[in-house]
């Protein structure tokens, strides 16, 4: 179907009559996501400085195999060949990574910032061909709900890490205590929960699929709670992205001896 004859129909990349700084949002998102991916990849490949006392970095939790006392099944097993780069983070980080990658908010944001599809609303695109999420490969985004199930299991594990971060061992034994690291780990779990529990797929599964939700009072309540978090899903997505990286940095700096943890009591 032919559109109105206008100056830029199927025009060049970036063509628009918009006067505002439309590129700013995409540029900020581009920088934010790219910085996170670079840092997270670097941190995941380090394989060291990820624990400090009772603290465990969220990039390394759960530690399935590893050298720290947090490792569930002990050190790296012999059957993993030496030529494969190993770090406890590499075993698990794919799950939260793919969870975010397939999140509806992130999808809409990185299609714009990293793929210019479109660069911003009502701005010309670099390509004429378009498949959207209608066919391979992006049709795979529909797996999101399964990653959400895994992400929710991770929330329990990270909450368990916060509990463990309240028990400090010294020469006289193990004592209950709170350090700045404990608080950072706890805030991180709260932000991650606000993000993951506001997931669109969860919103659908807890009650969104029902047309007569009033017949199911518990699901109705759950739907309202998820919808409440969902309304600020973008905000929680960014806050939790920032906090998870910050928590890793904090544990890393403590572990490297650059920063000493502040023990509140």
């Amino acid at each position: 179907m032919a559109g109105a004859e206008v100056t830029w129909k199927n025009g060049k990349f970036g063509t628009t009559q918009r006067r505002d700084r439309w590129w700013v949002e995409s540029a900020l998102v581009f920088c934010g996501f790219t910085a996170f991916i670079i840092y997270a990849t670097w941190a995941a490949f380090q394989g060291k400085f990820y624990t400090h006392g009772p603290y465990l970095s969220p990039f390394y939790s759960p530690e399935i195999f590893g050298d720290s006392p947090h490792a569930i099944f002990g050190p790296k097993p012999g059957w993993i060949p030496d030529w494969i780069p190993f770090s406890p983070a590499l075993l698990i980080l794919w799950a939260p990574g793919l969870f975010r990658f397939t999140c509806y908010y992130y999808r809409g944001a990185y299609y714009k910032s990293h793929w210019s599809d479109p660069p911003a609303c009502a701005v010309g695109e670099p390509r004429n061909k378009y498949l959207g999420e209608n066919s391979f490969p992006l049709i795979m985004q529909n797996v999101h709900r399964y990653l959400m199930y895994i992400a929710i299991a991770f929330l329990f594990l990270l909450a368990w890490d916060v509990w463990k971060a309240m028990w400090f061992t010294d020469a006289t034994g193990t004592h209950f205590g709170i350090g700045l690291g404990t608080i950072i780990l706890a805030v991180n779990v709260c932000l991650l929960s606000s993000y993951a529990l506001g997931c669109h797929s969860l919103r659908h599964i807890v009650g969104g699929y029902l047309d007569s939700i009033s017949e199911h009072p518990v699901r109705h309540k759950a739907y309202e709670c998820v919808s409440c978090l969902n309304a600020s899903h973008k905000k929680w997505a960014w806050c939790s992205l920032f906090s998870v990286a910050f928590t890793d940095i904090y544990v890393r700096l403590c572990s490297m001896g650059i920063w000493s943890d502040w023990r509140i009591f």
Binding site: Y104, Y105, R107, G108, Y111, K112, D117, P118, C121, A122, Y130, G132, E133, N134, S135, L138, I139
Partner: peptide, 15 residues
């Protein structure tokens, strides 16, 4: 109806 074509840009909601 091609719902898969929508790539969730939210432009529609914004206008």
């Amino acid at each position: 109806h091609g719902i898969g074509y929508c790539n969730i840009t939210t432009c529609c909601r914004q206008v």
